[in-house]
Simulated scan of single mutants.
Amino acid sequence: MTETVWAPDGSNLVVHADNADFLPTLPDGAFTLIYVDPPFNTGRAQQRQETRMVLNAGGDGDRVGFKGRSYDTIKGALHRYDDAFSDYWSFLEPRLVEAWRLLADDGTLYLHLDYREVHYAKVMLDAIFGRECFLNEIIWAYDYGARAKNRWPTKHDNILVYVKNPAKYHFNSAEVDREPYMAPGLVTPAKRELGKLPTDVWWHTIVSPTGKEKTGYPTQKPEGLVRRVVAASSRPGDWCLDFFAGSGTLGAVAAKMGRRFVCVDQNQPAIDVMAKRLGAHAEIASCPPA
């Protein structure tokens, strides 16, 4: 095995590297949780520009806010990456094979995709992990953005959940946030107060364009979504891995929940965002090409 910058008793890491070069440097079974949100192969460029509001004391800003206060809109860095591959599956398959190798015996993989590729990924993961290791398909449903008029509007992503060993995987439903009952009058007051466990359909908003979570990175996922994954499938002190880390949401959640993490991305804009977001909780490292 090539020398690695990671150590089981070392620091959390943000790694600037091609994951195809970095993953083989890691030892077998090192991670309890792997969450990956790879490019969806949409065939188009993804981009988002940071914006922030600055109070304009003179009252002649371009936006009016709370109590009539005037604000200037300041445009920041434009983050962009190409979400198109001529051979998507030869790109993704070896990385998923590495994910299987890197999972501990009680570990779990969450693969976040959308309707374009998820059915192919299910067949691929059945072959890599074994069909008996399939745990769930989670539907993340949201209600935001434009609505098509010539078909049913697409407002969900798919998350495939596979375990390394179906007899030993870690899953703690007691740690998962609960949801309000849709018909609270039909349950006891005690149940109504406690709430119900989520099913495999998760209703959760996207990252608010004006919220504190927003980093400006395209396709950033909300912390609430990833928090549920981390809570259910890892324990405090466990190592978590995201090798398509983007804005570093897994690292942000893991740091808040007492887990250790490695976030990997080859794009410099992603590293810049994660250095700002996770720099207090992780070392920034790099892995030279193989």
Rank of each mutant, 00 (worst) to 15 (best):
90 S>G: 01
92 L>Q: 11
53 M>K: 15
19 N>I: 04
20 A>L: 10
230 V>C: 00
226 V>D: 03
125 L>S: 08
158 N>T: 11
59 G>P: 07
49 Q>T: 14
142 Y>C: 15
86 S>A: 14
102 L>V: 02
247 S>N: 10
244 F>W: 04
231 A>Q: 14
275 A>P: 04
66 F>H: 12
251 G>M: 07
184 P>E: 15
267 N>D: 11
166 P>M: 05
95 R>M: 01
119 H>M: 15
261 F>G: 10
102 L>K: 02
50 E>M: 06
70 S>L: 06
220 Q>V: 00
13 L>Y: 03
183 A>D: 15
262 V>P: 06
235 R>D: 15
120 Y>F: 03
280 A>V: 03
85 F>R: 07
230 V>F: 01
103 L>Y: 14
133 C>F: 00
33 L>S: 08
125 L>G: 01
68 G>R: 00
45 A>D: 06
243 F>E: 06
200 D>W: 08
114 D>Q: 11
29 G>A: 12
133 C>K: 13
210 T>P: 00
122 K>N: 05
132 E>A: 14
133 C>N: 15
46 Q>F: 09
251 G>K: 06
109 L>F: 05
87 D>Y: 02
115 Y>K: 07
135 L>D: 04
71 Y>W: 15
281 H>V: 01
213 E>P: 05
228 R>W: 03
70 S>E: 00
90 S>P: 00
111 L>A: 10
248 G>Q: 14
204 H>T: 11
14 V>S: 09
191 K>F: 06
47 Q>M: 11
254 A>W: 02
201 V>P: 09
220 Q>S: 08
55 L>W: 11
66 F>C: 00
74 I>E: 15
79 H>Q: 02
171 F>S: 09
171 F>V: 00
164 K>I: 05
262 V>S: 10
158 N>P: 01
156 H>S: 08
286 S>F: 04
171 F>L: 04
207 V>D: 12
101 R>P: 00
42 T>I: 12
257 M>R: 06
235 R>T: 01
184 P>H: 15
189 P>R: 10
22 F>P: 00
226 V>C: 02
29 G>D: 02
185 G>I: 06
246 G>P: 12
40 F>H: 08
273 V>L: 12
108 T>Y: 02
109 L>C: 04
228 R>I: 02
122 K>H: 11
131 R>V: 05
272 D>S: 08
90 S>Y: 02
54 V>I: 14
136 N>Q: 05
250 L>Y: 15
264 V>D: 09
155 K>C: 02
229 V>Q: 05
84 A>L: 04
251 G>T: 08
213 E>Y: 10
288 P>K: 11
137 E>K: 03
237 G>I: 11
85 F>C: 09
45 A>M: 03
230 V>A: 05
203 W>P: 00
146 A>I: 10
128 I>L: 11
73 T>A: 03
62 D>M: 03
72 D>Y: 01
91 F>Y: 13
113 L>V: 13
276 K>T: 08
230 V>G: 02
227 R>F: 03
187 V>A: 05
20 A>H: 13
246 G>C: 01
159 I>R: 06
209 P>L: 03
174 A>N: 14
